[in-house]
Design a binder for these strands. Structure first.
Lengths: 122, 122
DNA sequence: GTTAGACATATCGACTTTTGATATATCTGA
DNA sequence: TCAGATATATCAAAAGTCGATATGTCTAAC
């Protein structure tokens, strides 16, 4: 098992959870998720950035750009840019709902897993 | 919330779980899942039958047809047909793997949900 | 006896999602 | 100098999803 893709619903849940612990930028979120899951969860750029855009558009996160100043000589040159994402109050509410829903669904799936043996009907 | 669609991975897990308790036919599986989840899980024909075909093709279940004799007069008329699905030993092994995997992933998602608060990095 | 609705299997196509590839550009360390 | 990590973002091909549709049987109500 080299790693599981996060399905979009779980992806939103996990990303909002990460952001609930503090603001972060896209690349850091990817790294964070991979590291904390020991490589079990992968969230590629093709999934991450559209998701973050959606969160921004729907007001679940707020954003701001950071100009990363390099250690090099030219301090006036335009540096690398980071887009920071911060969870909003609306985002926290959504996260709560998502967590609740996720747990409810998980419990429901679990309820199918190891019940008593039913007689074969034929 | 009127009902959640089962994602294909969960769908296989749940269907195999239902079949692990005894043979069943398609329509009964749909009803069973809807009833046991109190309508929370829905598995439409467009999802169910392709899934059952796949399970059959890959040897996870075995099948046989049943001719349902009507209570009516003409006992020679071709009646309604049911296709019964029975889980195979290979299917039981697959189910065990799926259950294990599902629990591992669920625990992993859960591990993202309520950890300590991290300092905002900027 | 007719008919509405449940029973039963199955496929189809429009729609959405997924994911690797690609693009662009910067920074760091060997 | 140059490979590889950092950083954001889009695209299109492939895969997956799901309601609608098709076909036919059976039962219970009227």
């Amino acid at each position: 098992m080299t790693g599981n893709t996060l399905k979009s619903e779980s992806a939103e849940l996990v990303v909002l959870s990460v952001l609930a612990e503090g603001a972060a930028y896209g690349y850091a979120i990817t790294r964070d998720i991979a590291a904390r899951s020991e490589g079990a969860f992968r969230l590629g750029p093709g999934q991450l950035y559209p998701l973050l855009s959606k969160l921004e558009k729907t007001g679940l996160v707020t954003t701001r750009w950071e100009e990363v100043k390099a250690g090099g000589a030219d301090q006036d040159a335009p540096g690398r840019r980071r887009k920071w994402y911060e969870i909003s109050p609306k985002g926290r509410k959504r996260l709560e709902q998502r967590v609740e829903n996720h747990r409810r669904l998980t419990a429901l799936v679990e309820s199918f897993l190891a019940p008593g043996v039913r007689e074969a009907e034929a």
